[in-house]
Design a protein around this nucleic acid. Structure first.
Lengths: 198, 198, 198, 198
DNA sequence: TATGAATGAGTATTCATTCAT
DNA sequence: GATGAATGAATACTCATTCAT
């Protein structure tokens, strides 16, 4: 890849990153193309050289986020941890990821305000796959006797996925009433453990 | 109150209700004043006789929702239930409420897309008060030995509040992958019980 | 006239007076019907019982102003004053009148912003008649040797009429740079006298 | 400056000129943004790229007018004329200027219809400076014995400034009763001379 | 390629006028 | 008569998208 090509790639990524930030903070309708361009320090028109429009850019952003999120979680798989630790590791990674990607919870929850249905996200499948990942950890934990036997695997996996996504996203915000810190995450971890342990 | 006055009150409420629905489904930026007017079957201009504008209308909607939510939960207090049942009752009521008021989770979570910071919600206090309600149930449960002694009351109250708000809001959506039903809520109740029980 | 009739007349006059004030301060386009109604302490709809609309009300206001103005000036005619004193008396009366009727200068000058042409003021004739009044005083002064012989009667009459109308209207305003007081009017009187004296 | 830049400047000026014309003819409230855009042959939205809104555009117009007016008058200063001729030259230039800028009188007189108080005109100072210019000519004339010794300099300067502004603006209008021509201006000049001469 | 000026359809807001009470 | 709620056309303003440079 030439230096020129690298510059191009970097610029593209800057645009996508800027868009990710804007969509996360302002929502789809609340974000202006001009704001994205300004945040990426490129001209208005350049966006349209690389993306078909606002919706297209949004699709790319969502695809990117889900990809990054899955990447951030998967490593937990291959580290020889037990189910309990796996669950905790996945939770912590997910929270850490959502801290800087508050758009993910909205994607996970299929929030209509983001018009994902209309726009058509190609990543619902991937989200679903991730829930299967959590479910498999739960099933494994039950099999190994670490988690209680009457745990409803599917429902709990879904619950956990949404809980940490939402809870984590909240960490992103500057709520003066409830400052985010590690103690908060630790408490959430204990809460979930208590809920699933045998 | 005259018939005229009654009509006035009803119409006002129709407008607020319409606004509530639009904001919930489309977000603040995604909602048009015209859509609200059409949904309330009134003229565009009439909105401005009663409300200063879109932002004012939004504030009123939020105030309304929080008031209704608190009203829906408080009765659980005075029914002579034990802590575990109280917690369950509050959860179920809150879920039921959120089913038809998907905007509440956004309010609870301080979602930036709703520009609550900019608009200034006068109801953060009331939300905080509600968290205290949950916390008092938890403390009571610990004192009575129904909940585990090492439960972190504040953090857990916060966690529960956000969990059911978010989880319940999801129930509102028509996610084909995860249809909402009583079994789902039952599972969530069991999940929370498991997490707090002694 | 019955008491009822009197109340009616008073209310009508209150509306016209309110309209006069609003038009004077905000211009035609800048005035809202609601503002007039509020200033007159009557309901919005009542205006339309008595007047056909905003334009009609404006016509009435203009007619009223010109009528009052002419009434205020005419007495100067019949007091056995000499031309110089007559001119001064008319000037002072006109200034005093305009102080509380800043709309008059606009009417006198045919200001297009008031759309008098479109609306069609029936009082241009009366305004013209008034100029003739000033002219006759000037002619009399020349004949009596009080004013200089080379004075162009028509042009000067027009000039004086507009000068004092405009100058007086300025007195109405609260310009901190040039506070209105009697000394100012006195100076203007001296200025005009110097310009016309023999 | 590139050709692009030149085009930009020209177009900007076209917009301001169009606005100047509209405001002058219709007043502030009577002017629509669309009318300005049409008169400038640009799109509605372009105005908002260059100006923050109608009020901002109005401020710019006023600033422009006062600047042009002062520029038009100042040359009279440096031509070695005597006080009487200076006064006449300034009057004629001002009248000529107002003929095509009927908004100036409104600015000079602080006409409330233009909401200058609310909008806040940054040019009152400049207007005041101009009055000082007239005053200095008058003082010079008194010192040289051309004007009468008992002339009240400040008041007369103010009077003259307002007279010619208002009178000249009238010339702009198509009043069938009093057609504007040089004879009229000549008569006004003689009127002022008579008022100030020794 | 990159820019940002320009467009115009869309949206929030205002206000003269009507009409049921 | 008197009210003020209701209407809807008009107007200010925004913003995704295009295009000349």
């Amino acid at each position: 890849m030439s230096i020129r090509q690298q510059g191009r790639e970097q610029r593209l990524q800057r645009i996508v990153d800027a868009a990710r930030g804007c969509f996360a903070e302002q929502g789809f309708a609340g974000t202006t193309v001009e704001a994205i361009a300004a945040r990426a320090s490129v001209s208005n028109g350049l966006l349209y050289k690389h993306f078909q429009g606002k919706e297209h850019l949004f699709q790319v952003v969502v695809t990117d986020i889900v990809r990054d999120w899955v990447r951030a979680l998967v490593p937990a798989e291959s580290e020889g941890l037990g189910p309990t630790q796996k669950l905790e590791a996945m939770f912590r990674r997910s929270v850490a990821f959502c801290r800087t990607n508050p758009l993910l919870p909205a994607v996970l929850s299929g929030d209509k305000r983001f018009e994902l249905v209309r726009i058509g996200s190609p990543d619902r499948g991937r989200v679903h796959a991730h829930r299967q990942l959590v479910a498999s950890v739960l099933a494994d934990g039950i099999a190994k006797g670490e988690f209680r036997a009457d745990l409803e695997v599917d429902v709990t996996a879904d619950l956990i996925q949404h809980i940490h996504a939402e809870y984590a996203s909240r960490a992103y915000r500057n709520d003066p009433e409830f400052p985010y810190d590690d103690a908060l995450v630790d408490a959430a971890v204990r809460f979930i453990h208590a809920a699933v342990r045998a």
